[in-house]
Amino acid sequence: MTTRKKRRAVVDKNTCVACGCCVKVCPLSAIQIWHGIRAAVNAERCVGCGKCAKECPASVIEIQEVQA
């Protein structure tokens, strides 16, 4: 049996400046700005489409494979 992997957006918490660009482009509303400090991804909603990573002006979001 093959282990299924899913893709998820991961935000670099140390360099995110909470600009909100990722929030605007997420089709599933899986990203929110946490306490005005940084973006936070809701892993249950994120499908790893990559729109947020492409939109991020600081390039601090990457799409990673995680165990399903």
Results as ranks from 00 to 15, higher is better:
Cys26Glu: 04
Ile33Asp: 03
Thr3His: 12
Asn42Ile: 11
Gly36Asn: 00
Cys49Ile: 03
Arg7Gly: 05
Val25Leu: 08
Gly36Val: 00
Cys21Ala: 15
Gly36Ile: 01
Ala9Ser: 05
Ala9Asn: 03
Pro57Tyr: 01
Asp12Gln: 02
Glu55His: 07
Leu28Pro: 06
Val10Met: 02
Glu55Val: 11
Cys22Gly: 10
Asn14His: 11
Met1Thr: 14
Val11Asp: 04
Arg4Asn: 14
Arg7Lys: 12
Gln32Cys: 11
Glu62Leu: 15
Ile31Gly: 02
Ala53Asn: 08
Thr15Ile: 10
Gln67Tyr: 04
Val23Asp: 06
Cys46Lys: 09
Ile33Met: 07
Val11Tyr: 07
Pro57Arg: 01
Pro57Cys: 01
Ala39Asn: 03
Arg38Ser: 01
Glu44Cys: 10
Thr3Ala: 15
Cys46Glu: 12
Ile63Trp: 11
Lys51Trp: 13
Ala18Arg: 13
Ala30Leu: 15
Glu62Thr: 15
Trp34Leu: 01
Val41Gly: 04
Lys13Ala: 02
Gly50Ile: 08
Cys19Leu: 07
Asp12Asn: 06
Ala18Phe: 10
Cys21Thr: 12
Cys16Lys: 07
Arg7Ile: 07
Val17His: 09
Lys5Tyr: 15
Asp12Phe: 01
Ile33Trp: 05
Pro57Met: 01
Ile63Arg: 13
Arg38Gln: 00
Val60Phe: 14
Asn42Val: 08
Ile37Met: 00
Ala53Arg: 03
Glu44His: 10
Lys6Cys: 12
Cys56Ile: 07
Ala40Phe: 04
Val41Cys: 03
Gln64Gly: 08
Gln67Thr: 06
Thr15Gln: 05
Glu65Phe: 09
Gln67Arg: 04
Thr3Glu: 15
Lys51Gln: 08
Val60Gly: 14
Val23Asn: 05
Cys26His: 06
Ala39Val: 00
Thr2Ser: 13
Lys13Pro: 01
Glu65His: 08
Asn42Ala: 10
Ala40Cys: 04
Ala68Cys: 03
Asn42Thr: 10
Ile33Ser: 05
Ala58His: 07
Trp34Ser: 02
Gln32Ser: 14
Arg7Leu: 11
Lys54Phe: 13
Met1Asn: 10
Glu65Gly: 09
Lys6Thr: 12
Asn42Tyr: 07
Gly50Asp: 06
Lys51Glu: 14
Ile61Gln: 10
Lys6Gly: 12
Gly20Arg: 05
Ala9Gln: 03
Val60Met: 13
Lys51Ser: 12
Arg4Gly: 15
Cys26Phe: 07
Gly50Lys: 05
Ile33Glu: 03
Lys51Phe: 13
Val23Glu: 08
Pro27Gln: 05
Ile37Lys: 02
Thr3Cys: 12
Lys13Gly: 03
Lys24Val: 09
Gln64Val: 13
Lys24Leu: 09
Gly36Ser: 00
Asn14Cys: 09
Val11Glu: 08
Trp34Asp: 04
Met1Leu: 11
Gln64Cys: 12
Met1Ser: 14
Cys21Ser: 14
Cys26Ile: 09
Val60Thr: 14
Ser59Pro: 03
Val41Ile: 06
His35Arg: 00
Leu28Tyr: 10
Val23Arg: 05
Ile37Pro: 00
Lys5Val: 14
Cys46Gln: 11
Ile61Glu: 10
Val47Met: 13
Ser29His: 08
Val10Phe: 01
